[in-house]
Design a binder for these strands. Structure first.
Lengths: 206, 206
DNA sequence: CCAGCCACTTGACAGTGTCAAGGAGTGGCG
DNA sequence: CGCCACTCCTTGACACTGTCAAGTGGCTGG
């Protein structure tokens, strides 16, 4: 709870280990060593290994939320499209953190702080979609559309980092192409979504 | 390569450990014990821990492919919708396996057998989408739509198992409601997609 | 018959998460 | 002032893990 200095030091060390050692092969003893503490120091602040990871994931959701809140768009459609792009960028910029955030088996999924942070991120998407089509006859499906949009961008991040999109992009593709394809697919989806909601002719393809 | 008996026994034990111990906290020594072999037996057949997991993931993609190939639909739209539902069901029926299949950090992502199995599953979705709108002026975006559809159902599975959809479904929700919501969102998406492609009035909401 | 190979075991090593117990410092209270 | 309780952290230990090196058994082909 109280952000004691050593607790913060442990968290910083854990984040560093996370980004450089990659994925969740993160070791309590290694972060303690990096923080200059004894090997059981983490146990005191975060009861478990899962407890430490939960704290990091919670911070991750908070960071995602503020990043999404910063997004602006001249129209509701553009706003949603930029939100999706921002979400994709977040996932691709810090893959290890993003991975961890959606790995409930290694976290304490019932942790209230974690759930609150998670709900905060969804709230941004929900608000954006509800602004998109407030008077549309299908507006009762609007939360559903928020979830669909979320699932879409989330899936794009996952597949992109798996290289699963690569066969579609060509033989000489690299990671950057993969990421760019993910962004373009997100844009394309929001174009389709806007078209379906306004029932106007589709926008020119990118 | 050759499906020697003990190799099969190890794989079976590993799958059993995977479903009951959950996620990838699967231990080489535990599967060897369960298979009645010595603790280093897995090393001989699958060089690494990642090697074992890669073999299981490859089998998983193969199983997903045959399940998707079995799907039929009276119309291309219905076919795609049922494919999505089948994909979601697969992910929710065996969450640990599904998790593993999309965790390249714990696999050997460059393994040719794994990549082939992965491409096979995508091929089924790609074929379904290309049948959906062959003469549509936007048909050059059809592979993009296959990827979008894949990303959507994939994200739905991930979010559903995370309980991330739960806030939208109500306070008294449980896992079954979550799964049902994921399926309904998949159906809704395919309805939107069909509408966007045919530019006809939207179908009645479920 | 026997050399070679394949499939597997045995033994060892460093590293891990978790627990119990203990110590060092600090603040409060008689 | 003296003492106590408390929080924070360390130390030591345990069982367990993945990985490697070396060894063993049995089957096979020459």
């Amino acid at each position: 709870m109280s952000p004691s200095a050593t607790r913060q030091r442990l968290l910083a060390a854990a984040r560093a280990e996370l980004v450089e050692r990659g994925h969740a092969a993160i070791s309590l003893r290694a972060v303690a060593r990096r923080a200059g503490l004894s090997h059981a120091a983490p146990k005191h602040h975060f009861h478990d290994r899962a407890g430490l990871l939960t704290a990091i994931a919670t911070d991750g959701f908070a960071a995602l939320t503020v990043q999404l809140r910063r997004v602006r768009g001249s129209s509701p459609e553009e706003h949603l499209a930029r939100l999706g792009r921002s979400y994709i960028d977040f996932g691709l910029a810090s893959p290890a953190l993003f991975d961890l955030m959606f790995r409930p088996s290694e976290l304490h999924p019932a942790d209230p702080a974690l759930q609150a942070a998670q709900a905060g991120a969804l709230g941004v998407l929900g608000a954006a979609v509800s602004h998109l089509a407030p008077a549309d006859p299908m507006s009762r499906d609007v939360p559903a559309l928020a979830l669909i949009s979320w699932a879409l961008v989330h899936g794009l991040v996952t597949l992109s980092r798996n290289g699963a999109l690569r066969p579609a992009v060509g033989s000489g593709a690299d990671d950057a192409d993969d990421a760019e394809l993910a962004r373009r697919l997100g844009d394309l989806f929001s174009a389709y979504l806007a078209q379906a909601l306004t029932r106007e002719p589709p926008p020119p393809a990118p």
